[in-house]
Design a protein around this nucleic acid. Structure first.
Lengths: 196, 196
DNA sequence: ATAATTACATACGCGGCGTATGTTGAAGAG
DNA sequence: CTCTTCAACATACGCCGCGTATGTAATTAT
């Protein structure tokens, strides 16, 4: 073997991130015992502190990983749409629906902001905001969307989406609530569209 | 004195809520030591557990108090506007600006949801959502706002507002960012208005 | 070959939380 | 008026989790 060393290290890091992600996503950040989930990965807290500095550092790494996955999914969805506007709407709807997944919801929309502050401000993990901004910029260039500050629009839409997801997830009838939220959201977006 | 007993009890409760509110609003919920801030109020953790059950119970009481204050402020603002639509917009803008206040931001938009789950779902502290919903309902009845699910609209707007506030608060130039956010927000609301 | 650094594990102390157990003073019964 | 009872707290104790300091084995550098 050429580089067993670096591979082992990368593997250790990956194990810790996976273990933390699992724990944070289920019991939540505060209730996740470092002793417990590192032991579950066959390691100790020593490894965690060595690689990530502290508990927050691991959370940051987990968020970065999830954000990358979300960004990839969003890009694929918008690319698959027949035109830019529909791609944009699909992207937003997908964002709401992703926020329904318990792991994403808990880590990205709850504990993340609470522990690290506004996550979208972190330069390492603003992939989703950036993806939304790109879509909006293109729509404005195409004349499909009216005059609105790009970043402001991206953040307002981001906020509406994540809150909508929380609303859906906590409701008694998530399916029905999801339909209501998505319909309202489409109406909201339609208001930004230039009428032809 | 007629009822010194109940007054003392209410005073104790008020002291605990005030102390917790101060601590939660500055150092945050997780870092707030119950021993410390109860001692600051001349009490002990025993009083806290007696009245509120646990730390989360106190947070809930604090949130309820703040929510009542916010609701009152929002109602006054919308009532002071020349017409319903302007009152509604002013209400939304005020909501953004309230979310700029550190105490409100920290407790209502960060630690609250992280610890208790979606706060707007709590029957005791959904005053702001209810206020928004009432305004929207009236606008729809007046024919000023188009067809959109009332609660969905309220929650989407609520989410956009709170996220906008986070964005503003964390930015390098809050004044400028605030202007951008409010402008974008007005554009967003304008899209929901029935054109005449 | 030895020195130095990396990648972890182990050990220790501290602080915070929850509970179990007092203690005091006020309300109600006789 | 006295005794009982219960509410409104304070005190005491133990557990758990975090952070750090230290130890150790393996790899790399010289």
């Amino acid at each position: 073997m050429r580089k067993p060393r670096e591979e082992m290290i990368a593997e250790t890091r990956a194990k810790l991130i996976a273990a933390g992600r699992q724990a944070f996503g289920t019991v939540g950040y505060a209730a996740a015992s470092m002793d417990d989930f590192t032991a579950g990965a066959g390691l100790t807290r020593g490894a965690l502190y060595h690689h990530f500095g502290d508990k927050k550092g691991l959370l940051q790494a987990v968020i970065q990983q999830i954000d990358a996955e979300m960004t990839l999914r969003l890009n694929r969805i918008s690319a698959a749409a027949p035109n830019r506007w529909q791609g944009f709407v699909a992207e937003c709807v997908a964002y709401i629906e992703m926020a329904l997944e318990p792991e994403i919801q808990r880590i990205m929309f709850r504990d993340g902001p609470a522990v690290l502050g506004d996550v979208s401000q972190w330069p390492t993990s603003n992939g989703c905001i950036a993806a939304l901004s790109r879509s909006i910029e293109q729509l404005k260039a195409d004349g499909v969307m009216g005059d609105i500050d790009t970043e402001a629009a991206a953040r307002l839409i981001n906020g509406a989406s994540s809150h909508a997801a929380l609303w859906i997830a906590k409701s008694d009838d998530p399916e029905e609530t999801s339909r209501r939220a998505v319909r309202g959201f489409r109406t909201l977006l339609e208001g930004l569209r230039v009428k032809g």
